[in-house]
Structure formats: C-alpha cells, structure tokens
Measured scan of single mutants.
Amino acid sequence: MTYKAILNGKTLKGETTTEAVDAATAEKVFKQYANDNGVDGEWTYDDATKTFTVTE
C-alpha cells in the first residue's frame, strides 16, 4: 500500500511517499524522515487518503 506524507516544516516543505504494509509502519518511516530533515511538529493522519501531515 502506498502512503503519503505532507511536510509543512519551517525549513522543509514538500511531499514524499512510501510503500508499507500498514499505517503504523509508514508512520515510523515518515517520522524518521522528518527527524532526519529537522522537522518536528504536530502529526495527523487521514485514513481515507492514506496521508500523514506534519506541521511545525
């Protein structure tokens, strides 16, 4: 399944996708990606669109 992350960081804005077996696995991948890029904020998840959003 393909999951998407939308990054609304102070220094990084954009989107990325990952293939994962479930939302929990995708969330770990996206949170690591955000952390590696200095983005730390509030996370939300929309199951209907399989989209995570982080906003700083």
Score class of each variant (00 low, 15 high):
M1I: 14
M1K: 12
M1N: 14
M1T: 15
Y3D: 05
Y3W: 05
Y3V: 02
Y3A: 02
K4A: 05
A5M: 15
A5I: 15
A5E: 04
I6G: 02
I6Q: 06
L7E: 03
L7G: 02
L7H: 03
N8W: 12
N8T: 06
G9C: 13
G9W: 06
K10C: 12
K13P: 04
K13E: 05
G14A: 14
G14M: 15
G14C: 15
E15C: 14
E15Y: 13
E15Q: 11
T16R: 10
T16D: 03
T17Y: 14
T17F: 14
T17P: 01
T18N: 03
T18S: 04
E19K: 12
E19Y: 15
E19G: 05
E19N: 13
V21I: 13
V21Q: 12
V21W: 12
D22A: 03
A23T: 08
A23E: 07
A23P: 11
A24I: 11
A24G: 08
T25P: 02
E27S: 07
E27Q: 12
K28V: 10
K28N: 09
K28A: 13
V29M: 10
V29L: 10
V29F: 15
F30H: 01
F30A: 01
K31A: 05
K31C: 06
K31Y: 05
Y33E: 03
A34T: 05
A34F: 11
A34Q: 02
A34P: 00
D36L: 12
D36F: 10
D36Q: 11
D36Y: 08
N37D: 03
N37G: 05
G38I: 04
G38R: 06
G38K: 06
V39P: 01
V39L: 13
V39Y: 10
V39N: 03
D40W: 14
D40C: 12
G41W: 06
G41N: 03
E42K: 10
W43I: 04
W43E: 00
W43T: 01
W43G: 01
T44K: 08
T44A: 10
T44E: 11
T44Q: 07
Y45W: 03
Y45Q: 00
Y45T: 00
Y45K: 00
D46F: 04
D46N: 10
D46Y: 04
D47V: 09
D47P: 14
D47I: 09
D47Y: 08
A48R: 10
A48E: 13
A48V: 12
A48Y: 10
T49M: 06
K50P: 02
K50G: 05
K50T: 02
K50H: 12
K50R: 15
T51D: 00
T51K: 02
T51R: 02
T51N: 02
T51I: 06
T51P: 00
F52D: 01
F52P: 02
F52I: 00
F52E: 00
T53M: 09
T53S: 05
T53H: 08
T53Q: 06
V54W: 12
T55N: 10
